[in-house]
């Protein structure tokens, strides 16, 4: 645990000292969250909350974690760490942990702002909590997996696009569908599952929950297995 904390501290320092990464991870999600909350008129609060969660999870957790893993591989930090005493899993947790914590904090801050601005309290708080934590977990795991096919930190801008937009699109798809007409397959995409949980699960809690668990488990398993520790040659 101490090793994970030490690595996380180092990762946060590096995050804060790199303006591009810091802006993507810290500022952009908050700006987007604020835009969603204060668009004037009578906002669709379910849409606002879903968009805030999905964008924070996507930008702060998914894209930032993918970029960080690719950057650490590119500057050979991962390989260097692997020459030390830490097991592989601890190294990966140490690199990813700050983005997970940051993602959860941002989701809480933006949701708090939305509730303060007039959003009604979630009808199903447990479902909302699962959407928040489960969405972060999925994005961290898929970030690790995506990093294995991302040669450089710059390439992360391209490799992260499909999943990020699929997650966002899945959320919009569910929100655009009447709750009575939501089908099981709509919840297969993580964004769809998060949106369904935020609005109040249309087909029960277990289905979107299962979707998030399966996404996390599969992405984490393959992500760990496929992790590249050295630069691509």
């Amino acid at each position: 645990m101490n090793a994970v904390l030490a690595l996380s501290r180092a990762e946060v320092r590096q995050l804060l000292r790199n303006r591009t990464t810091a802006a993507t991870a810290l500022v952009l999600p908050l700006v987007m969250g604020a835009l969603f909350s204060f668009t004037g008129g009578h906002p669709d609060w379910t849409f606002v909350l879903t968009a805030q969660l999905v964008s924070a999870q996507g930008l702060t957790v998914y894209i930032s974690a993918t970029t960080a893993c690719a950057a650490r591989r590119q500057d050979l930090s991962l390989k260097r760490l692997r020459t030390g005493e830490l097991p592989d899993l601890t190294i990966l947790l140490g690199v990813l942990a700050p983005f997970v914590v940051l993602g959860i904090v941002q989701c809480l801050v933006m949701s708090g702002v939305a509730f303060a601005a007039g959003a009604p309290a979630p009808a199903n708080p447990a479902a909302f909590a699962i959407a928040l934590v489960g969405g972060v977990a999925v994005n961290a795991a898929v970030g690790l997996l995506t990093a294995s096919v991302t040669a450089t930190p710059e390439a992360a801008q391209i490799t992260t696009a499909p999943f990020f937009f699929a997650a966002l699109g899945g959320g919009i798809w569910v929100l655009a569908t009447d709750p009575a007409k939501v089908k099981e397959y709509m919840l297969l995409l993580p964004g769809g599952a998060v949106a369904d949980l935020v609005r109040g699960p249309a087909l029960g809690l277990w289905l979107p929950e299962l979707s998030l668990v399966v996404w996390t488990a599969v992405a984490w398993t393959y992500g760990v297995r496929k992790t590249r520790w050295d630069r691509r040659s």
Partner: peptide, 30 residues
């Protein structure tokens, strides 16, 4: 690993950390 030290051909030290931070990090992982 606890019995070995490795100096790679390429550094692998994080560029954004200072010398002291790097050494303290490694001390905490050793």
């Amino acid at each position: 690993r606890p019995r070995t030290g490795v100096l790679l051909q390429d550094s692998g030290a994080s560029g954004e950390l200072t010398v002291l931070e790097t050494l303290r990090l490694w001390a905490s992982l050793t």
